[in-house]
Amino acid sequence: MLEIILRRLWQSIIVLLAVSLLVFVMVYVSGDPVELLAPPDATEVEVAQLRKALGLDKPLHVQYLQFLKHALHGNLGYSYVNNAPAVELIFERMPATFELAMMATIIAVIFGIPFGIIAAVNPKKIYSKAIMIGSLFGISFPTFWVGVMLILIFAVTLGWLPSSGRGETVKVFGIPWSFLTWDGIKHLILPSVTLAGYHLALIVRLVRAGMMEVLLQDYIKFAKIKGVSKKKIIFVHALKNIMIPVITIIGLNFGGILAFAVVTETIFAWPGMGKLVIDSIHLLDRPVVVAYLMIVAVIFVIINLLVDIAYTFLDPRIRLK
């Protein structure tokens, strides 16, 4: 068990190193930031000075090692636009993104799992077919269009819900949260539903397929013949078996949700790190983009690690090896 976790940890470090190298090289080959930064009327001496100040005069591998060293100290450069440490800017925006992603995950899970089970248990019923058609729409609608349509219906036409910003927030431990105020919750609804849609549909399909397969197994029939009630068979015997792949997908999807938050935040002007990175891309604020990619890579590696550990815990066949 410990061995598996340690091996995974080691793999995670390799992944991060690879990503850092990739990001660094891609950024390096994509042009000279000095030309962007230096004022148009700068002399050659001034440009050289700036180059030296930024450490861009050294050979590539030295620059990479320096980049790594700084990264380990939590320094991923200064934003050209905001003149603040890029890491700080991102951490400032991170809680908003996490709040949105968590909300979306919760929506996807609390609706996705029961819908999937219902559709699997009585596949011929009308409501099961409705769920499956709904899930087909769910995976076919592009996230951003769902957002636009929700704004059109609930904000523009009906005027029920706000369509931009976080609304009123409450600070807990110095971090502002929307879900603690009524106004904040109203602001959360549309973006989190938008973000949840695709993943909800995905979970429905996965749970349904898994459930249908498990329900055909001998051990389900044996449980029935033991006199276990249908409810318990579905919610205990079958569910625990499909929870292993489902938790894996939920975990991995959390990463996908974080990534798609980029789109959702742009649509709903949600002040998270996704909107920050899109704005930074448009403003050519490269350190912020690099910092975002590195931080997101760390988050993903951590998520994958946690999913792996959860997996080992849930599946006795692996746990005891």
Partner: peptide
């Protein structure tokens, strides 16, 4: 281990 959108975003951001 990274979502497709993020990788595409990274490439578009840089190139």
């Amino acid at each position: 281990s990274f979502p497709a959108l993020l990788i595409a975003l990274m490439i578009m951001a840089i190139w």
